[in-house]
Design a protein around this nucleic acid. Structure first.
Lengths: 185, 185
DNA sequence: GTCTATATAGGGATAGAC
DNA sequence: GTCTATCCCTATATAGAC
């Protein structure tokens, strides 16, 4: 199997993701990014003339698209609430695919990354929360309760990611997601 | 009110905390740390000959002590489970005192910080989890269920911190903690 | 105990050959 | 589209005066 010589910008972007996930914005050096891409530092600037900020933004955009597809799309399905939530949780397991799983948006909102991307991340999370609340409120419960249920579920997922990373094993995350399937929605 | 000229290392440490919390290890520059301490870069090395790594470790140790006092100690109280958990949640609100609240241990386990402090952070979180599970298991339920309940609660708290930081307001965090008080334990 | 000044390395970014 | 070479700045760390 021969190594590809010329990469598309999208392929390069995909190779950069895990560096930003594990190191955050400030911790992601061009040296590490270039190594992950299999390119030199100079070559990165062909794909991203805007430098590191543009690299991180491209990675964030890719993650946003994946989140929409894997997690938000199942929330648009019709059916009973429990089935919809189960579909979303399948997407959550797919979207957070590392071992341990790490949330890119969490990693990118510290230090300089916070200055650059806080708004974009907030928008993504808010969209997720709003759609989740919509699913719960269609269950004919009070709108405020629906919002609270959405917050609870989102917090449980994000918290499981934190714990899983701290412990260093994916299993903690998967176990927690399984338990969330059996809650009463 | 006159400004103190000579600071103890502990006082300096306390002033460094919020820089590491908001920027993580890689994002915390000596310039920012010196400014926060009200000292020059050079003076920081008097208090921390080991440089930035030692500063972060000192901050982490202080946070560990505060966590023990504010959060773990209430878990040693006697009484019914609900009261003990309420006491812990009071400590949680006190320990995570920023606006928005940010988890130092989360911030310090990305990039180079992960290499340096992952083990120490894991130990702290594991201790919290173990004590929490102990409280739940004294409620005469299955040990595995107690562990799961502990994980659920810990994840809810950590996730609330994430959401609160992303949204940029402390209110989200406080509301979530209030709701956790009314769960059935 | 704090300062100024400085050493040294690594970071991000650019120019131009191939 | 990728490379090498280089520039410049910031970052961490050290030395020594006060």
């Amino acid at each position: 199997m021969q190594r590809k010589l010329r990469l598309t910008t999208r392929e390069v972007t995909d190779r950069l993701i895990h560096v930003f996930r594990e190191a955050g914005y400030d911790g992601a050096s061009l040296e590490a990014l270039a190594a992950a891409a299999g390119l030199t530092r100079g070559s990165l600037y062909h794909h991203f003339p805007g430098g590191k900020a543009q690299m991180a933004e491209a990675v964030l955009n890719r993650a946003g698209a994946a989140l929409s597809q894997d997690i938000l799309m199942p929330l648009r399905a019709r059916g009973n609430t429990a089935n919809i939530i189960n579909g979303m949780l399948d997407g959550v397991l797919k979207y957070y695919d590392g071992d341990p799983p790490i949330c890119l948006m969490n990693a990118l909102t510290l230090g300089e990354g916070h200055v650059l991307f806080a708004e974009k991340v907030e928008n993504a999370v808010t969209a997720w929360h709003r759609m989740l609340a919509g699913v719960f409120s269609s269950g004919a419960i009070d709108l405020k309760d629906a919002n609270n249920e959405a917050t609870d579920l989102l917090a449980s997922i994000q918290g499981a990611l934190i714990l899983s990373r701290v412990v260093g094993t994916r299993q903690v995350f998967e176990d927690q997601i399984e338990r969330l399937r059996h809650h009463n929605y």
